[in-house]
Design a protein around this nucleic acid. Structure first.
Lengths: 193, 193
DNA sequence: GCTGTTGGTCAACAGCGGTTGACATAAATC
DNA sequence: GATTTATGTCAACCGCTGTTGACCAACAGC
């Protein structure tokens, strides 16, 4: 029931708006993305975007969650977690009509945004650091946070600043190096100075 | 000559403006910092800030350069470069009246800013990646870029997002871990897959 | 067919942003 | 002392922002 033609149309436009928001937030920072841009992409009025999601912040949070799909991020076996994470930097999602958005894109674009930092802090802590710490089975979160920092840093220098040696494609020397570093962090001996 | 009372007063206010800009840019992202804020801090009119530095972008670039003092960043001997870099994350400059601004603060706050990325790209490439690559004597810039990414990532998660295990003070477990990682990157064998 | 709800638009608000040009004031030059 | 130069201000422009309330049209339930 309730899947009336009206309701179906409503959720369809909502999806269109969310999709447009994801694409925008994956390419520019929180402040730089305007609700009017998103509305235009989705073919609706600004007011409706606002009415649909309550506020820009909530639309951002939903976009973030939709791209990350947090549950699936750290589903791989702990053994090859390093390779898995190294691949995440290069991973892009071409499906669902939205043209190629990586799982870290949104988080990276707005990482230094003041207005978005509230949403991002919670999300990063709960959906990245903690699951990662659980996966690698460390008693402190420190190593997980350092690994997350490495991924974030590479993501920014690669995708936002477009620093040259980092703009390689998947599978190259860079990916190998990153995996090695992560393994090194996991194996590091912290007790000895 | 030319150090007339008028000229002296002029460059004094210019310094005051630059100082105010540094403090602002070290605490908020490029987009979030308004010229009116800076002007108010320095006790002058907005118009004069603009006339003094030409544009917001140029004021940002000057603030960046003043905080980083690029020449001194990689002056240490190549031997203990890892420890030196690990310390940079925690370093703060309390001198010159400006209350405690770290050398990486400005770059980190605006790292994902679209408008600032032009300035930041050039600066990062010329004043961080290349000198770092020169210091560690690698033929490719890849490792230098990865190390820079690590520093940037930690800086953001620590100072912007304020992720818990990263907010330690200098000299703790974290600093040791970072230095170990950097040493690992420098020693990594890239030829073997 | 009438009513209530839901999808969606329109226009406007109120505030902010960087930027600009005209103007005042004070010092330097001659 | 008059002219020029430089410091600094004032007010406004123009475009953008998220947000709001009034409004229209189409469908659902009775």
């Amino acid at each position: 029931m309730a899947r009336s033609a009206l309701a179906r149309k409503g959720s369809a436009t909502r999806d269109r708006i969310l999709n447009a928001a994801i694409l925008r937030f994956a390419r520019s920072s929180y402040e730089s993305v305007g609700l009017r841009d998103i509305a235009a992409d989705a073919g609706v009025d600004v007011a409706y975007v606002h009415r649909c999601f309550g506020s820009k912040e909530r639309l951002f949070a939903e976009s973030l969650e939709a791209t990350m799909e947090p549950a699936k991020l750290f589903a791989g076996p702990p053994g090859d977690i390093a390779d898995f994470l190294a691949k995440q930097i290069f991973a892009r999602d071409g499906g669902r009509g939205r043209n190629t958005v990586g799982p870290l894109d949104i988080i990276i674009r707005s990482l230094s945004s003041v207005e978005a930092s509230g949403v991002l802090r919670e999300f990063t802590r709960d959906n990245i650091i903690r699951p990662l710490a659980r996966t690698i089975g460390q008693k402190t979160d420190t190593r997980a946070a350092v690994i997350a920092s490495l991924l974030a840093g590479i993501g920014i220098l690669r995708n936002v600043l477009r620093i040259d040696p980092l703009t390689e494609v998947e599978g190259g020397e860079l990916e190998t190096l990153i995996a090695q570093i992560i393994n090194g962090v996991l194996a590091a001996d912290c007790s000895s100075g």
